[in-house]
């Protein structure tokens, strides 16, 4: 396999047949978006995994940093009241 550093990285999202949303399945290298889409089709949907594909340049994704984990996520840990568990569901309501 040759040097790939000149080819940008793409994140691949696939929506499965029954799925409601696209899920991240992996990443790959490709020279441009159209090639990335086809590579994704060939690499990630060989076994009927999906009906729709998104590819996104990895460089366009802004990610939270592990250093920010505490300020980002820790404060939610002791706020159990944010979960909808503090009221009774009436018997008549079946689908909730």
């Amino acid at each position: 396999m040759s040097e790939r550093s000149h080819e940008p990285l793409w994140e691949v999202f696939i929506r499965s047949k029954r799925g409601l949303s696209h899920n991240h399945v992996g990443s790959l290298h490709a020279a441009d978006a159209q090639l990335a889409l086809r590579n994704a089709r060939d690499v990630f949907t060989r076994r009927m995994e999906g009906v729709s594909i998104w590819v996104v340049p990895s460089a366009e994704i802004t990610a939270s940093s592990p250093d920010e984990r505490d300020p980002f996520f820790e404060p939610a840990a002791d706020k159990a009241y944010r979960h909808p568990t503090f009221y009774d569901i009436p018997k008549e309501v079946k689908q909730l």
């Binding site: 396999m1 040759s2 080819e7 790959l28 290298h29 086809r38 590579n39 060939d42 690499v43 060989r46």
Partner: peptide
């Protein structure tokens, strides 16, 4: 030439 193309 590339892994992706190998599969394609």
């Amino acid at each position: 030439p590339t892994l992706e193309e190998d599969v394609a």
